[in-house]
Design a protein around this nucleic acid. Sequence first.
DNA 1: CTAATTCGTTAGCTTCGCTAACTATATTGG
DNA 2: CCAATATAGTTAGCGAAGCTAACGAATTAG
Lengths: 151, 151
Amino acid sequence: MPARRARPPADPAEELADRLHSTAIHLLRRLRREDSAIGLTAPRLSALSVVVFAGPLALGELAAAEQVRPPTMTRLVTALEGLGLVVRRSDPEDGRQIRIQATPSGRAVLARGRARRIEALAGAVRALDARERALLADATDLLDRVIREMP
Amino acid sequence: MPARRARPPADPAEELADRLHSTAIHLLRRLRREDSAIGLTAPRLSALSVVVFAGPLALGELAAAEQVRPPTMTRLVTALEGLGLVVRRSDPEDGRQIRIQATPSGRAVLARGRARRIEALAGAVRALDARERALLADATDLLDRVIREMP
DNA sequence: CTAATTCGTTAGCTTCGCTAACTATATTGG
DNA sequence: CCAATATAGTTAGCGAAGCTAACGAATTAG
């Protein structure tokens, strides 16, 4: 939602929460427009990134890391597998679990330009000065912590 | 995705962009879980907020403000209208346009506790100290500007 | 050895986002 | 003044993400 705000809410915490919410929505909507370039949606890209950097892991672990329910992650992994970016392997120690692992192609997609979707934002970020980038980095750290500690 | 990052990407701008992206995804996913409490999804709440604070406006204007295509906004407005939070009125000056206006109920929903969805985040934000809140506020301002100026 | 738990999947639902195509109203040009 | 064009909103139809509920397979407990 736009910055115009006739009369701000009484509670500054609610005001800030509202703006964080809006900004997150608008950022993702803007980035969604880049999707067609690489063919990876936001949730898929995010999940692939975890698999690439956090090594092989079970579907449940991946779902927990991404804060999503298992059926949702099943569908994401199936899609990534269909794109050849990830493989399912059975866990030799526990027949119920699967090990999800990135393929060379999956690593390449992430490495090569960090995916178009992010490129658009990275370009905009590059135009900022060092102080502004530091501000965003600190805020992201803080917000990540806040999110994880939410009840 | 989690904070663990085996080897950070070469470009700091890409690294930051990637983290902003992830954080936005995780914030919205976490807030989505509060939806059932009030029955307002993120896009609906965001649109309602604009209508309440930016007065009556045309569908196209609302779509532009929310950075969404007109058909998407048509569906959002129809949903909000069905919930009695908003009304469509015909524009007396231009028969093609409609004026979208919040109902007292719509204002009340937004006013009363700022909607549950936001409440969860507001509670977490309330636990921060003033310096941390200022950091988030500044970062949000900056990021909003960055998003709007993206090509 | 049965019973209970855990893991992943399937099925089915809602919502959001888009493009393409349509209707209705306004505007403009010959 | 009327035909042609442009603009505003809607409808139809698609793909994707999220959820819960229910289920099969494998493991652990009693």
